[in-house]
Design a binder for these strands. Structure first.
Lengths: 234, 234
DNA sequence: TTTATGATTTAACCCCGGTTAAATCATAAG
DNA sequence: CTTATGATTTAACCGGGGTTAAATCATAAA
């Protein structure tokens, strides 16, 4: 039976197994907010449903069927997040909680409706990729703002939605997907970063910058390097 | 604990207790699609939660607390129905099923958002009254189309949403809230009715007409009677 | 007033998703 | 190679919402 609990476990396992080869009971317990015993029981249940391959004492991984379900749930979640923000005016640090509940009850028709209304988007409000209906996950960037060299121009592509408070802070800084930023300075020994956003200088905590994923700005960065190249050649 | 099941029972009891003084186990079993035994157990549970006054073998009625919850759930349901139809283009015979699932999970903030986006409406897409946030139920009409005298002009105010197929049929006939209709003829012995809708003659089954709630048309009906009065006076 | 019948409740059971406490396993350290 | 320790599983339990079958109640009819 595909209950909300089953969908939640599968979704969480999907996200965790990108980092670790096999997902352990304890990390699952921590992420679901339940006991290790509950997780063990659920993993057996998921294995029974052929959603997971589970080796006792050695963790679990999603089966192809489990992965399909995970992607469906994530698609629901991210479409909902974008819809709540775009169409209903939710602040971007509140959409996650609401989508968390809605994702398990909306119909395929509802999903199609909001996808259509949003123009079949590839990324949600935080820049997270929205799986397509046939289970393809759009590519996204993995570089973070805090590791950039001083002087580079970047475009914000994604902001981690793990922490709502951090999300609010980063949003107030103006670091939203699509925004162009130049790293101006880096305080030594893990101090704050100075960036230029929309013509303004801004000081950003390195922890926040770690959660901002960026891509090198084609327009801005090229013109910057052209300047340098030009300078050398002259 | 206010679970989806509790909310559903309370909502159904609310609707049933407008007709019968006390709601019986068997009617609840029929409406919830469960066994009488399950209903008995749930009624005890609801009594425990102070949502219902329950006398074994003699049925139940909502307590003031139960009524409050029922109205909140119905408000959720009807706002959702209108939103699905209005903002998302759902056909009016499909909104009920989707709202049935969503009504238990949306937050108060979500409710406020759609209420605002819809302009704080008093009636849903079928003409059913939407309880206000403080628990007031807007007044609605109780006269049905099939009992009208031949010749009268009426405005459709509400259509029963009990049966989706009937709803589709009635909608195809053009009998939607706000539409003005004149009853032209009535076939004897429960035969079909002939009505004028938007300048067109239409034949309607009496069973369908029983589910269409109307109000006498102020504009049209007055001018009709004026004509007659004028004729007599001349 | 008794009795038959249908409505209702009780009893025993099921699954789901959780809990705590005890047992067991994997593994790093001695 | 043994052992200590932390991770994991097992066992027994709980509440929520359902089931079927048996017992009990309410009531209309004889």
């Amino acid at each position: 039976m595909r209950t909300a609990a089953v969908e939640d476990y599968v979704k969480i396992i999907y996200k965790l197994q990108t980092q670790t080869e096999t997902v352990s009971t304890s990390t699952l317990a921590e992420r679901t907010g339940t006991s290790a015993a509950a997780v063990t029981k659920m993993l057996k249940h998921l294995a029974q449903l052929n959603l997971v391959s589970y080796t006792p004492y050695h963790g679990a991984r999603l089966s192809p069927m489990g992965e399909t379900i995970a992607l469906e749930v994530i698609r629901h979640h991210r479409l909902l997040e974008l819809y709540l923000a775009q169409a209903m005016g939710y602040p971007w640090d509140e959409v996650d909680a609401e989508a968390e509940k809605l994702e398990h009850v909306i119909s395929e028709e509802f999903e199609d409706s909001i996808a259509r209304l949003l123009g079949f988007p590839d990324f949600d409000i935080h820049g997270d990729p929205i799986p397509t209906r046939d289970g393809q996950m759009p590519k996204t960037v993995t570089e973070t703002l805090d590791t950039q060299a001083v002087g580079t121009w970047v475009v914000v592509r994604r902001v981690s939605d793990a922490d709502a408070a951090l999300l609010r802070y980063v949003g107030e800084c103006g670091l939203k997907p699509g925004v162009e930023v130049q790293l101006l300075a880096r305080e030594p020994f893990g101090g704050s970063l100075t960036v230029e956003i929309a013509g303004l200088e801004r000081r950003i905590s390195p922890q926040a910058a770690q959660n901002v994923f960026v891509e090198h700005s084609l327009s801005r960065d090229l013109s910057e390097s052209e300047k340098k190249v030009g300078g050398i050649l002259e």
